[in-house]
Simulated assay, not measured.
Amino acid sequence: MKIVFVILHYHAKEETIKSVASIQEKTDVEEYKIVIVDNASKDGSGEYLKKKYEADEHITVLLNEQNLGFARGNNVGFRYAKNTWDPDYIVLMNNDVYLLDDDTVSKIEQEYQRSQFAVLGPMIYTVDGRCNINPIRLQPMTKAEVEKEIRIYSNKQKLYHYHLDTLRDFYRRIRPVKKKKSYKVFIERMEHVQLHGCFMVFSRKYTEKFDGLDDRTFLYREEAILYKHMCENSLNCVYLPDIHVFHREDASTDTIVKTDRERVIFEISHHLKSLNVLKKVYESYEGSGGGK
Results as ranks from 00 to 15, higher is better:
162 Y>E: 02
164 L>P: 05
166 T>D: 10
167 L>H: 06
167 L>Y: 15
168 R>V: 02
170 F>I: 00
172 R>P: 00
174 I>G: 00
176 P>I: 03
177 V>N: 02
179 K>Y: 06
180 K>L: 10
181 K>W: 00
183 Y>Q: 06
187 I>P: 00
189 R>E: 15
189 R>I: 00
190 M>A: 12
190 M>G: 02
191 E>W: 01
193 V>C: 03
194 Q>I: 05
197 G>C: 11
198 C>L: 01
199 F>A: 08
200 M>K: 15
206 Y>P: 05
208 E>M: 09
212 G>Y: 10
213 L>I: 03
213 L>E: 13
213 L>H: 06
215 D>C: 06
218 F>M: 10
220 Y>P: 03
220 Y>F: 15
220 Y>L: 12
226 L>P: 00
227 Y>G: 01
228 K>F: 01
228 K>Y: 02
229 H>K: 11
229 H>V: 11
229 H>W: 10
231 C>K: 14
233 N>Q: 04
238 V>I: 11
240 L>K: 03
242 D>Q: 14
243 I>E: 01
244 H>C: 10
249 E>K: 08
251 A>G: 05
252 S>L: 02
252 S>D: 12
254 D>V: 09
254 D>H: 06
254 D>M: 06
255 T>G: 02
256 I>V: 15
257 V>P: 04
258 K>P: 00
258 K>N: 06
258 K>C: 01
259 T>F: 12
260 D>N: 13
260 D>A: 13
260 D>G: 11
263 R>N: 11
264 V>W: 06
266 F>R: 10
267 E>W: 07
268 I>F: 14
272 L>I: 08
274 S>W: 04
274 S>E: 04
277 V>M: 09
277 V>A: 08
280 K>T: 12
282 Y>H: 15
286 E>A: 08
286 E>P: 03
289 G>K: 13
290 G>E: 04
